[in-house]
Nucleic acid binder design. Structure first.
Ligand SMILES: NC(=O)c1ccc[n+]([C@@H]2O[C@H](COP(=O)([O-])OP(=O)(O)OC[C@H]3O[C@@H](n4cnc5c(N)ncnc54)[C@H](O)[C@@H]3O)[C@@H](O)[C@H]2O)c1
Ligand SMILES: NC(=O)c1ccc[n+]([C@@H]2O[C@H](COP(=O)([O-])OP(=O)(O)OC[C@H]3O[C@@H](n4cnc5c(N)ncnc54)[C@H](O)[C@@H]3O)[C@@H](O)[C@H]2O)c1
Lengths: 219, 219
DNA sequence: AGGAGTTTGTGAACGGGAGAACAAAACGAG
DNA sequence: CTCGTTTTGTTCTCCCGTTCACAAACTCCT
């Protein structure tokens, strides 16, 4: 194999591409499990549900990891994407709010297998204290600072009711958490250097409802 | 109040705008609960976490529902957006796969309050049968067709393991479901007229990890 | 009534992403 | 070694979405 182009690590990858890299990663893992050792951009694009030209352009931002006339080495490409995203190492994660959703998240095995490790489950309700969810003891929310410091946690997950979410976010930010995944239906305000991503189930359903309504109207 | 412009209902609203309308709707509901009866585009934009110019342009696709020099009537605008999205009526929804996540979804009260009604919980595992989650009895997956027909269900939620998701989707489509919200980490293939939206927790975390890694690198 | 002050609705400029299309590179056959 | 085949990496074009900036419209005050 000849020398691969591997651009300097300070280039910036378009946000739209970053959002798709995890999808490619998953598709490559699936291919790998099926025993496929090589694949073309077309095959991978189908597996990931995207256009093959778009896939190739996305990959070109990372470097030149394919072989013309042949395709991509599944394992090699998978490693390169994982390295680019940063999931070759394990990210410690803390989950706050161990209600319906928090418990489901804690029990989710896809966490561990994709580069994330739940180091603590926190809840403000004393009644939940010492409950064990997914093999992890639920602790007092006040332990947040200690845990973040001890495990060097950068990523926090918020699964509390909406009214508590901003408070929790503020506390997280104060402790040094710089990335937040928020499930509460509220717009969090945080300092600029902190990344927030929101997952909102009812927004997704409402988008479906809109299209559903239009289908019904034109039918 | 003078005549409002209300464009013919068959214009097409940009997808990016559709995705934000539910956010505006939620912000308006919050304002309404706080007793605010009127708001400017700037206030609403702050509450929704977007740029005010973008907000105004988004709203302009629906019609001209504001008053220059004054702002928007909260209740009126809220109703108009709800009508546009289609959540003035109730949408019946069926959830398939009542495991960790499915149970959390079934217990989620935000469903009902935002225009959706869970009409059935289905699971393939006979051990779950007759369990009652959130006041609804878990039924056999084979009841899908009957339920979809009886309640005229258009929207289905998939919370099964990845391996089962495509099968479930196929069955849903065969029954007449035309919108699917998929939580399984897999790319579903469905006929063109069926809408699929995907919620993928680990993708969200991986995107955060990417940015986190970059922060660490430049620090 | 008129003018000052506000805020909407939208035209226009701009930037980024999507997809088509193709040149460059690798490989295999003869 | 040369030619044909395959598939990548990249350029170019187009389109969508964002943002600016301002005229139009409305209120309030004098
Ligand atoms: N359940 C779902 O499927 C679902 C879906 C979409 C969004 N959500 C959102 O996710 C959030 C959690 O939903 P849920 O159904 O798990 O609610 P829940 O009421 O079951 O759980 C919330 C948990 O947060 C804890 N909590 C409250 N205040 C806290 C604080 N200040 N600090 C730490 N912990 C605190 C509570 O003790 C409770 O255990 C809500 O904002 C909800 O709107 C839930
Ligand atoms: N738990 C989470 O927080 C979480 C987060 C993100 C994504 N997910 C994804 O959501 C899905 C569900 O996760 P979970 O943790 O609830 O899993 P789970 O194993 O707890 O539940 C899955 C349920 O689906 C049922 N099921 C299996 N095959 C079925 C079929 N063919 N028809 C109907 N029902 C069937 C099972 O009986 C089980 O009750 C998985 O694909 C998972 O990857 C879960």
């Amino acid at each position: 194999m000849s020398a691969r182009t591997s651009p300097d690590s300070s280039r910036d990858i378009p946000e739209a591409t970053v959002a798709r890299l995890p999808i490619y990663l998953r598709a490559l893992t699936t291919l790998s499990e099926q025993g496929t050792s090589t694949c073309s951009s077309e095959e991978l694009a189908v597996a990931a549900g995207v256009n093959s030209a778009k896939l190739r352009k996305d990959l070109s931002y990372l470097g030149s990891y394919g072989t013309r006339g042949v395709g991509y080495d599944v394992e090699y490409l998978r490693y390169q994407i994982a390295r680019e995203i940063g999931v070759t190492q394990d990210w410690p994660v803390v989950i706050v709010g161990i209600g319906n959703l928090g418990q489901a998240l804690a029990n989710y095995s896809g966490f561990r297998s994709r580069g994330f490790r739940v180091v603590a489950l926190l809840d403000a309700d004393p009644a939940r204290r010492d409950e064990v969810v997914a093999g992890i003891e639920v602790q007092a929310f006040d332990n947040l600072e200690q845990i973040v410091k001890d495990h060097d946690v950068a990523i926090g997950v918020i699964a509390t009711p909406a009214v508590a979410a901003q408070d929790v976010a503020d506390r997280m930010v104060a402790c040094g958490v710089t990335s937040i995944l928020n499930f509460a239906p509220i717009v969090l305000s945080v300092p600029e250097q902190v990344d927030v991503r929101k997952v909102d189930l009812s927004i997704e359903l409402q988008i479906l409802a809109y299209h559903e309504q239009r289908k019904a109207a034109t039918a």
